[in-house]
């Protein structure tokens, strides 16, 4: 499948933003008297990332001016649900943040609701892909689970970095939580890679029905140059490159942030290490997301083999 930059950026940045928002939903329990600056920076970053991603996601639309129509079909469409949930999360989270910041009135249940909505939004993002049976690699419950775990791990890493920025150090507890969350997310992703079915669900034989007669192969394609289908669904990357990118994704997205967190614990000067950890993690996630699309094969290609 064609890896569109706008969608890759959207899923990675909105994912991390909503992950941070999820954690902030419980912030009233930690410190009801958090300073204005603390709240402003935390909520600001969470909203900025989520909103930047959502805006970027409209760049790949043919008619972004009609994007509001995508909010209408939440009964049947995961893409629509995702849009509706994202807006509800931002509204609910916005009210929660503003009441707390400007009226010193942290409403805990509003925070919890924000947290739940943030999780549901990310789940819906994953389901957009997991619902597509024609792409066998994606068509699994594990797909949204991975989206969710990466979103939480990314949010936690951001939270850790901001904590270090405000309080000078990240602390052993939060550091350990962040490392465990990274570990769980990458373990799930590793499992997602391990359990991929390599045999395609549809073959030239089932696609044409001629398999009942014998071995079927394409003799002449219906068109002489690429068309929309080949560009969108025919995008494929060699196994060799995929292996390299997978290592890069795990290295930058998982191993490097853990090492940097450990460095922060060992040498102090936490915020610098952790800022670096956030940056390399996001880079690794971009590689992971690129691969998510580039590796996936679509059933229609059975008509071209």
């Amino acid at each position: 499948m064609h890896p569109a930059n706008s969608v890759i950026f959207f899923t990675v940045f909105s994912g991390a933003g909503f992950g941070l928002l999820f954690l902030l939903g419980f912030a009233t329990m930690a410190d009801e008297n958090a300073s204005f600056l603390f709240l402003f920076v935390h909520f600001g970053i969470a909203f900025a990332m989520a909103v930047a991603g959502l805006i970027s996601s409209t760049f790949h639309l043919g008619h972004p001016e009609r994007a509001w129509r995508a909010l209408t079909q939440w009964r049947s469409s995961w893409l629509s649900r995702e849009g509706v949930l994202a807006i509800l999360t931002l509204l609910c989270g916005g009210a929660y943040a503003l009441l707390w910041m400007f009226f010193f009135n942290p409403i805990a249940p509003l925070g919890w609701l924000t947290a739940v909505l943030a999780l549901l939004t990310v789940w819906a993002t994953g389901m957009i892909y997991a619902q597509i049976k024609a792409v066998r690699l994606w068509y699994r419950l594990l797909t949204p689970v991975c989206y969710l775990l990466f979103s939480l791990a990314g949010g936690m890493l951001l939270f850790l970095m901001l904590h270090a920025a405000f309080f000078g150090e990240a602390g052993p507890f939060l550091s350990s939580v962040a490392m465990v969350m990274l570990l769980i997310a990458w373990a799930a992703k590793w499992w997602w890679w391990r359990t991929r079915g390599d045999a395609p669900l549809s073959t030239p034989g089932t696609a044409t029905g001629l398999g009942a007669i014998g071995k079927t192969r394409l003799l002449e394609a219906p068109h002489t140059s690429d068309n929309y289908l080949m560009k969108e669904m025919g995008f494929q990357i060699g196994r060799k490159h995929a292996d390299k990118l997978r290592l890069l994704a795990i290295g930058l997205g998982g191993v490097a942030p853990v090492v940097l967190i450990l460095m922060a614990r060992a040498f102090g000067g936490d915020v610098v290490w952790l800022l670096l950890a956030v940056i390399v993690h996001l880079l690794g996630m971009l590689a992971e997301r690129w691969l998510f699309f580039a590796e996936a094969k679509h059933a229609v290609m059975a008509f071209y083999r």
Partner: peptide, 23 residues
């Protein structure tokens, strides 16, 4: 009403939908 998101073309296993390059 179509916003040109292309998701329906992804969902069709038969490649029966194509986005128009001009419209």
């Amino acid at each position: 009403w179509c916003i040109g998101c292309g998701l329906c073309a992804w969902a069709c296993p038969y490649g029966a939908r194509e986005m128009d390059g001009a419209e």
